[in-house]
Simulated assay, not measured.
Amino acid sequence: MPSSTHDAVRAQLEAKRERLLERVADLSKTPELGAAQGFGKRIGDGTVEAVSRLTDIGVGGSAEVGLARVERALAKLDEGTYGQCDACGAEIPPARLQAMPDGVHCLACAAAQRRTAPPRRR
């Protein structure tokens, strides 16, 4: 990978890391009691806050997963293995890296991981 491309990818990943760190920090703050407003007679006190907090937890989990991917991609840049699949070692197509600079798996391995992911709780 040319040095200028390497630098551009690093800058893009570092900017994404900063956004994700800010998002995780923001979601980690304790919400103010009564910050969310309920409406209607059937919604009990705290229901809106509880639903909002559960949503934030889900978003926070996604942000943490994204942050881990960005950190791994940055580590691969440092190691000189950026663009190489973590699972099989094959080259990750440049178009995939352009679309997902934090991608660390080729398309086949990423698809296999999605198939073997544990089922979501209901």
Score class of each variant (00 low, 15 high):
M1C: 06
M1N: 07
P2C: 03
S4T: 13
T5I: 12
A8E: 11
V9K: 00
R10P: 03
A11C: 02
E14I: 04
E14Y: 03
E14C: 07
A15V: 06
E18N: 04
R19A: 13
R19M: 13
L20M: 03
L20H: 01
E22D: 13
R23F: 12
V24P: 05
V24M: 07
D26Y: 12
L27V: 05
L27W: 05
S28A: 14
K29W: 01
T30D: 12
T30F: 03
T30W: 04
G34Q: 00
A35T: 07
A36M: 07
A36T: 07
G38L: 08
F39S: 13
G40Q: 00
G40L: 02
R42F: 09
I43A: 15
I43R: 15
G44P: 02
D45T: 10
G46L: 05
G46M: 06
E49S: 10
E49R: 09
A50W: 15
A50G: 08
S52Q: 15
T55H: 15
T55R: 14
T55A: 14
D56E: 14
D56M: 10
D56P: 07
I57V: 15
G58R: 15
G58S: 13
G60W: 04
G60R: 14
S62Y: 08
A63G: 01
A63K: 02
A63F: 04
E64M: 12
E64T: 10
V65I: 09
V65T: 12
R69L: 13
R69N: 12
R69E: 14
V70W: 04
V70C: 05
V70D: 01
E71G: 02
R72P: 05
L74Y: 05
L74T: 05
A75K: 14
K76V: 03
G80P: 00
Y82N: 00
Y82M: 02
C85Q: 02
D86F: 01
D86Y: 01
D86A: 09
A87C: 06
A87P: 00
A87Q: 11
C88L: 03
C88D: 09
E91I: 09
E91W: 09
E91A: 15
E91D: 13
P93R: 12
P93Y: 05
A95D: 10
R96N: 01
L97Q: 05
L97T: 04
Q98A: 15
M100H: 13
M100D: 06
D102I: 03
V104M: 04
V104I: 10
H105K: 13
H105T: 08
H105P: 00
C106S: 04
L107F: 08
Q113W: 08
R114T: 12
R115Y: 06
A117H: 10
A117P: 01
P118F: 06
P119N: 09
P119T: 09
P119S: 11
R121D: 13
R122W: 12
R122I: 11
R122C: 07
